[in-house]
Amino acid sequence: MINARGNRLNAAAMHGALIVYTLIALFPVFVILINSFKTRKSIFREPLALPDAESFSLIGYQTVFKQGDFFLYFQNSMIVTVASLFFILLFGAMAAFALAEYRFKGNTIMGLYLALGIMIPIRIGTVAILEMMVATGLVNTLWALILVYTAQGLPLAVFILSEFMRQVSDDLKNAARVDGLSEYAIFFQLVLPLVRPAMATVAVFNMIPIWNDLWFPLILAPAEETKTLTLGSQVFIGQFVTDWNAVLSALSMAILPVLVLYVIFSRQLIRGLTSGAVK
């Protein structure tokens, strides 16, 4: 009896805390969304009011679509984010597998070297990176961004994934070897599915900073045809006047794709956790 009631109280408290947290976390998003559908005046007069017949306006969205090539920016951001994530996961997992699975000279040193990148912010090397990109002619291409983001994401990916790969049982890999799977097949068909939750974690951790980054697009690819969404939205924020309608509309639309990617990855995460994977 006492136990059951205790559980129910616990559950209520837990849900309460989670609901409060959700509200706090969603509040800014909510404010951005409602204000993106209002006229400039009503944004400032009553920022928290829902749009009504009088204050409703699509002016922000119209500006965004007229000004600049919004769809191109959107596409650029998407390509850069998805390609970077792909390379981070692929190369990160491969390096992690080698470090976790094979005994070779310098294994530990190599692991430490790869993990060092977690502690050193890549932006310190911006000037050198820019020089390199100029030398290789990659400035103002999406490749410049993809390469930099891949490099930025790899250390943490290798670190997390190698930890998880060490936990995949040796017997399982040996059984696969006896069954005639090549090392590549063991990696792709056996180990990768088993560390899928870890892959999803790495993807989510890397996705948001890449999507939102302003620094590298501004420095490495500011040309009109390679602008990312974040960089493209900056045209509405001026030194003296800021077109809030447009900024809020651009932001609202920028949230969507991240949301979709997040849902995809978190599905994987949950499925991985509940499949009773390793044992």
Partner: peptide, 19 residues
């Protein structure tokens, strides 16, 4: 290599492919 030796092995931990 193991797969070409004409052997089959059963492991203590079963080692079934979970997926």
């Amino acid at each position: 290599p193991p797969s070409k030796r004409g052997i089959a092995m059963v492991f203590q931990s079963y080692a079934l492919y979970p997926h």
